[in-house]
Amino acid sequence: MTPAAQRVLDTAGRLFYERGIHAVGVDLIATEAGVTKKTLYDRFGSKEQIVVAYLTDRDQRWRSFLAQRLDAAGGDPGGRVLAVFDAARAWSAEHGSRGCGMVNAHAEISDPSHPAYAVIAEQKRWMLALFTDLAREVDPERAERLGRTLMLLHEGGLVAHGLSVFPDPLGHARDVARDLVGRHTP
């Protein structure tokens, strides 16, 4: 990626997350990135493709961030589950308090034919698979159900965090996850 394209992606990511995808136009992205609209279109082709690049980049950064925390948790199955919630808290503190970028994007992009929709849906499928795999380490017989429950706790915590519904919803979700995992640990 050229330096100009990286500036566009970084700027678009910040603006999309802070203001919303529909509220941000290519003129604003180009101006704040210090590029011409021609450069923006040469690098990405369309606003839709900038959105796809933004969501893909955010997802890749989240997966890398999470992998580090899962590695640090070691082999303890319950600790690995809780590491996901701890990572979400740390990510939110570092990358913004508006909740999950994928959930926010889905609120604006609900049409399955939009190219960004596939990125959003795949990220959530990946999270469900991750929670199911982690749940399998905790309780192989109930992995599907426990994985779904953990994902619902995680996603609910992210949404409540973004809405500031009550203090530390991700911490609360972690506490509930700890209780669930504790019940299922042999």
Rank of each mutant, 00 (worst) to 15 (best):
F65Q: 00
E18P: 03
D27G: 12
A177G: 07
G96D: 08
E108A: 12
A73T: 05
A83K: 05
A177C: 13
L128Y: 06
Y117E: 04
A105L: 09
P112Y: 05
F65N: 00
P3Y: 04
D71G: 10
Q60R: 15
I50D: 04
P167G: 12
G25T: 07
S64P: 02
D111A: 11
A88I: 11
T11V: 05
Q68S: 12
L158E: 07
V81Q: 01
A160P: 00
G96S: 11
A116Y: 04
G75R: 08
V165C: 13
L150I: 05
E32V: 07
D42V: 11
S110N: 14
H95S: 06
A33T: 01
A135K: 03
I109Y: 03
G99R: 10
R136N: 08
V24R: 08
I120A: 13
A105Y: 00
V103T: 13
A87G: 08
D175H: 13
L153W: 01
Q6A: 14
F16D: 03
N104F: 06
P77N: 02
E144W: 11
P77G: 01
G45M: 10
Q6G: 04
V51Q: 10
I29L: 08
I50F: 09
Q68V: 10
L130E: 00
E108Q: 15
G162N: 03
T149S: 15
A87I: 04
P140Q: 05
G20K: 07
C100W: 10
N104R: 15
V159P: 03
D10W: 00
A53S: 09
D42Q: 15
Q68N: 07
H106V: 09
E141A: 15
G157N: 01
A33I: 07
S113P: 01
A173I: 02
W91G: 04
I21V: 15
D179R: 15
S46K: 05
V52C: 10
S46P: 01
M1W: 06
G171E: 02
P3T: 04
I50C: 09
A12F: 06
K47I: 09
G79F: 14
R145G: 13
A173M: 11
W62A: 13
L150F: 03
V8S: 09
R142C: 10
D76W: 12
T132W: 05
A67F: 01
A129D: 13
T2N: 08
G74S: 08
S92N: 07
V165R: 12
V84P: 05
M127Y: 10
T149D: 11
A107W: 11
G96W: 06
H114W: 05
D42N: 14
A67T: 06
H106P: 01
T11N: 01
R69H: 13
E155M: 15
P167S: 10
D57N: 12
R58V: 14
L170N: 02
R174S: 11
G156S: 05
I109Q: 03
L130N: 03
L158F: 09
L130P: 02
S46G: 09
D175K: 12
P169G: 08
F44P: 00
R142T: 12
T149C: 14
M151L: 14
E137L: 15
R148G: 14
M127P: 00
Y54M: 11
L134Y: 02
R148C: 14
S64V: 10
R69T: 01
